[in-house]
Each structure stands twice: as C-alpha cells, then as structure tokens.
C-alpha cells in the first residue's frame, strides 16, 4: 500500500526532470528544478535517509536556489531563451535519442541486477562503539572515512578560489548597496539568529541523530546570505585575516589533527578512542564554520556579479 507513495514520488521525479529540461523558458526550468529537488528530499525521507533529506532540503531549497535565482536575472533577460534558438538538428536529436535509449536499457539492467553484497552496514554497526559518536552516518563521515570529509571541505574552498579566477575578487568585496524594506529588515534580524540556532542544534544533534556538520554549515551559510541581502555584508566586510582564517580553519585543523595522530603512531585521521567524541565535535564545528563562510562568500560573489550586469557602465558606488 505504501508503495503507492513511492511510485508516485518516483514518477513525479522523472516527470519533473523531463519537463524541466523541455521547458521553453528558463524561469520555468528553474522552478521545476526546485520542485524536482523537493521530490528528491521526500524520496529520501521515504528511504530512511534522514541526513540526506536534511542536506538536500537545505542545499536545494536554500543555497542552490538562491544562486539560481540570482543567475536567472542575467540569463532570462536575453532573447535566446526561447525555444527557437535552442533546438539542435533533427539528425543529432535522433542520434542522441538512440544513444541515450541504449544507455537507459543498460543502466536499468545494471541497477536491476546489481549483486547484493550485503553492503557495509554490519561493519559500520560493529565499529560504532569505537567511533566516539552514536549516529552511524556521522561516524562514517568523521571517523571511518574522514579523509573524504576533509577533502570535501577542501573542494568547497577550491570552488571559491576558482570563482575568483573567473572574474577577479573585486566582485566579492563589493557589497551591493540597496534599499531594504523596513519590515524585511526586521524579519531578517529575527530569522538570522533562528538560522544560526537551528544550525547549532543540528550540529549538536549529529552525535546521536541525523544532522551534522554539512546541514549546520548550510543553515549558517544561509544566515550569512540573509544578512548580506539585508544590507549587512558581514562576511565581505570582515578584516581579511579573519576572513581567511574562517575560510581555512576547517581544512587546516582537520589536516593538523590528522598528522598529529599520525606522528603519534596511528594512521591518518585515526583518533584516540577516549577523546574521539570531543575531537569529532571540534572538527565538525570548524568544518561547518568554514563551509558556511565559503558558501556566504560564493553568494556574495554572485551578487557582486549581478550588480555589475544591472548597471554595466557605472563603477560601483561603494
């Protein structure tokens, strides 16, 4: 009976993916993509992946949505968004269609018959007492496979550096001055502390329940973005050393800790059993701070870009 929900969600996800890519205008495409993200979040809730659902809700509804809306302003203005300019020739369409169809058959066959190796659930469960936390996903993220998480903090940082390479860092340091509605100002003042609080709550929860560093990071980043939108570009106007420290703290501390224990005779990122829980909490907090800072910076950069495109020939006033 509950399979009906699953079937409907699956069909809806596929349908939204198709409609999103066939949409004649970019705003349709973007908002259908948001709906697709929401459907995936519900699917994850159904599949028991609550951590993933929180991360997806935060990223798809929060961060990526904000970036897409900001970018949409540039793109929806141009004329080529209509259907006319966006159709390849019939031959290449046919070729792509045939190729994708073959691929689809192979992929379905593959996922249908993927051997059941039992996964790593048992292994993860057995080692849980030694990991320092009680929630298996957090244990995997920050203990068993912490080099993944470490590199991931690095990837976010890299994305920010790559952004600077595309247009220069002046976009980022240029807070956009704009009028803020007085009511909106109050609402931002009210919501930002709530975002930080809920983020901290999720971070703390990560030890025993779904939640953790990424979810917290996205919520904190959303707080930074809200402040930026409300005319307080806190992050962009910080002292440079503080900004750099915030951005690199997670990556650096993670690495330092890893090598420290390796020098003490363990493997890379092998935490001593007694302090594992505390160390994981510290690492998570710093990683979350760094990711949040990077996400805020990425948005500040995007926003600086759209300010340029709004007034192409006048230098920024601040």
């Amino acid at each position: 009976m509950s399979l009906w929900i699953d079937s409907l969600l699956a069909v809806l996800a596929v349908f939204l993916a198709v409609r999103c890519l066939l949409a004649p205008t970019l705003p349709q495409c973007v908002f259908l993509f948001f709906a697709f993200g929401l459907t995936l979040a519900l699917a994850w809730a159904r599949l028991g992946a609550v951590d993933v659902a929180i991360a997806e809700a935060a990223i798809a509804a929060g961060f990526l949505g904000v970036l897409l809306i900001d970018a949409l302003r540039d793109f929806s203005r141009s004329r080529s968004t209509g259907e006319g300019g966006d159709r390849p020739s019939r031959v290449s369409q046919g070729l792509v269609g045939a190729g994708v169809l073959v691929f689809l058959v192979v992929a379905i066959e593959a996922v249908w018959r993927v051997p059941n190796g039992g996964g790593l659930t048992a292994l993860a469960a057995d080692n849980l007492p030694q990991s320092g936390v009680d929630h298996p996903v957090t244990a995997v993220l920050l203990n068993y496979r912490s080099y993944d998480t470490w590199l991931e903090v690095g990837v976010v940082l890299m994305a920010l550096l790559a952004l600077f390479a595309t247009g220069g860092r002046e976009y980022f340091c240029r807070p956009v001055v704009r009028a803020v509605d007085p009511l909106l100002r109050q609402v931002i003042l009210l919501f930002t502390p709530v975002l930080f609080l809920v983020g901290a709550f999720l971070l703390y929860l990560g030890k025993t329940e779904p939640g953790g560093a990424f979810q917290a990071a996205v919520l904190w980043g959303a707080g930074g973005i809200l402040l930026h939108l409300g005319g307080w570009p806190v992050f962009a106007s910080m002292a440079p050393w503080l900004r750099h420290l915030l951005l690199t703290a997670g990556f650096g501390f993670f690495l330092l800790l890893g090598f420290l224990f390796m020098a003490g005779g363990g493997a890379l990122f092998e935490y001593p059993l007694a302090q594992a829980g505390l160390l994981i909490l510290v690492v998570e907090t710093l990683a979350a701070l760094s990711i949040a800072a990077a996400l805020t910076a990425i948005f500040a950069y995007f926003n600086g870009m759209s300010a340029e495109s709004a007034e192409p020939f006048t230098p920024a006033s601040s």
Binding site: T25, P27, R79, G82, D181, L183, L184
Partner: peptide, 25 residues
C-alpha cells in the same frame, strides 16, 4: 511568520508592475 513575510514582499514587489507581463519576449 515566513509566509506572511513572503506574501508581503511578493505583493510589494509586484505592486506597480503590470500584473500579467510574461518574463520573456
């Protein structure tokens, strides 16, 4: 709280714009 804010903001945004203007030519 969130949706009354959203309602106010969107209504204010749309005020003074032609109500049925499509976003692409």
């Amino acid at each position: 709280l969130a949706s009354s804010t959203a309602c106010y903001l969107v209504a204010k945004f749309q005020l003074g714009r032609p109500s049925e203007s499509p976003e692409v030519p």
